[in-house]
């Protein structure tokens, strides 16, 4: 029942080919995705679309991933942000989890893992709404 409601996902990653392919694969699974290649564009998009989840790279030109995470949490504290980075070290993981990231994943990622995270988020959302 719940799987019918697919979350609207924002992908922020400067690795253009990766972001595009990820959105394509999620689309094949029924997700609606928006792709941007830097933090500023992502933050600009945020108020205009009812995103249910964000996939965020840490290394970004301009604003860094951590700064973007902080700004998202300031504006929409409940919006789940999944960090997906090339090779995140323990310090970065600790800092991001401290900023209330939903999950911290390293590339390359298993899509099934990502999908299950989304299902978890959707389930959480629906269960919290009466």
């Amino acid at each position: 029942m719940c799987s019918n409601i697919k979350p609207y996902v924002l992908i922020i990653d400067d690795e253009q080919r990766f972001a595009t392919m990820l959105s394509k694969r999620l689309s094949l699974r029924g997700y609606l995705c928006e792709v941007v290649y830097d933090g500023e564009s992502g933050l600009a998009m945020l108020p205009r679309h009812p995103f249910k989840a964000v996939i965020l790279d840490l290394r970004l030109p301009g604003l860094s991933g951590e700064e973007v995470l902080e700004r998202i949490k300031m504006e929409q504290p409940d919006l789940p942000v999944i960090i997906l980075t090339g090779h995140g070290n323990e310090k970065e993981r600790t800092r991001c989890m401290g900023l209330h990231a939903h999950a911290f994943l390293n590339k390359p990622v298993d899509l099934a893992q990502l999908v299950s995270l989304f299902e978890e988020i959707t389930a959480g959302n629906t269960s919290s709404k009466p």
Partner: peptide, 23 residues
């Protein structure tokens, strides 16, 4: 560590491309 990061990005691309083909 820096190198791993640099390698993981193209690997992620390969992962998605191959995954997409499989899809």
């Amino acid at each position: 560590a820096g190198v791993a990061h640099e390698i993981n990005n193209p690997l992620a691309v390969i992962n998605e491309e191959a995954g997409y083909l499989m899809d």
